[in-house]
Design a binder for these strands. Structure first.
Lengths: 216, 216
DNA sequence: CCCGTCTACGTACACCGTACGTACGTCACC
DNA sequence: GGTGACGTACGTACGGTGTACGTAGACGGG
């Protein structure tokens, strides 16, 4: 009812993606959602790609980064990683567009800025801090894509169909592990890798055993 | 010229993707590439989605998995990870479709089967082996997506434009690290994370320091 | 009053995936 | 040698897509 603007369009796009999936999104659908003609959107958004950038930006800027510089760096890393994973919970179907559009805007840069600050405080100097950052991003992106179903979990195809899925002769390991492969507790999986990475980083700093948490 | 079949269609699709990118692919373009009518494709492929599965399968089945069960498990892990990364080199623009289609076919299962076998030989029992596998896949997928440009490297936008990109006041860390962020040697980055993960796994096994390679 | 600017909108074009109907070449069987 | 069934290739058509372009109305300043 109120006047059209970029924020309303982006919000409608996010809603639509979450309701019907990223594939279902189209300029026509969004316009219909807003009760507006298709071409009216182009008064506020140059094209669909820019709109998706807006979606990524909107989702990304909702991440709560509460960084406490006085905390131990391992906990700061954990908190930042978990904050990023929130998007996979709040906006699961938007996750793919968030991670696949590289933003130059503040919202897109802030997570990296925070992470680099933490890594510097932890004691990593320039080159190594950047490598750590990139490794962490790779792990988080890969984890989120699994969590939202883009990437496989290797769960035997149907949740039903007792256990047997793959031919045990061809795939003995997969068959033997069908039990564990069948369930995928995304939070537990994420925490497992996170802990492993944090410990690996601590080792790299020569601080073995100081990470502050025992692993499950 | 020879008769149409699924393999020829898939091959044409892979070629087209590599030449013009995954977005440029369409049934009409593929048909034109093969010099046939669009609908002729549907005699051999039920729909576009199945065709993309075929693309993923074709690319995946070209990975060379030369697993030497007598080698140290750390080297086996390294070799398998690198083998997987080959696809990002040989078929960069197909990488996204490879990682985003979950295949139930042998070609799709084999890498996981091999990895689980290696992890078992290394001494990881059921549940932990599966978690290690998933963590490794997450890291590799995330790394490949960065390598093929889906995900950001945080390189200051243009390779030119000396160094300054972000506002140093807002993003002091990013600005200070602009040098290191500007360059992204994908092989070195991949190896860095790989080594970190392998060492973390070794620590988990209580085998500290036996990983067999020093890191750069 | 008039004119420039901005917003909303309709139409149109090129392209997409694919359902459907059809024509034709090949082979089995009588 | 028919002759029918079948599989492959193909054309047409429908409903969808992103968006270029032209138009019409609202609004504010001279």
């Amino acid at each position: 009812m109120s006047t059209l603007n970029r924020a309303r369009i982006v919000a409608a796009a996010v809603d639509l993606i979450e309701r019907e999936g990223a594939d279902a999104i189209s300029m026509r659908r969004i316009a219909a959602e807003l009760g507006v003609g298709v071409m009216s959107l182009y008064n506020h958004v140059p094209n669909k790609s820019a709109l998706l950038d807006g979606v990524a930006e909107a989702v990304l800027s909702e991440i709560e980064f509460t960084d406490d510089p006085s905390a131990h760096w391992t906990d700061r890393v954990r908190i930042q990683a978990r904050a990023f994973r929130q998007i996979a919970h709040h906006y699961p179907r938007s996750t793919m567009v968030v991670v696949s559009r590289q933003l130059r805007s503040p919202a897109g840069m802030l997570p990296a800025e925070r992470a680099l600050a933490t890594l510097r405080d932890a004691g990593f100097e320039g080159g190594e801090a950047v490598r750590m950052l990139r490794m962490f991003i790779a792990y988080i992106v890969g984890s989120l894509l699994r969590e939202v179903g883009v990437t496989p979990t290797f769960a035997p195809v149907r949740p039903d169909a007792p256990v047997a899925e793959a031919d045990p002769a061809l795939f003995p390991e997969l068959s033997a592990r069908a039990q564990e492969l069948g369930a995928c507790d995304h939070e537990a999986e994420f925490e497992f890798g996170l802990e492993l990475l944090v410990q690996a980083m601590a080792v790299r700093l020569g601080e073995r055993g100081l990470s502050g948490h025992e692993t499950a």
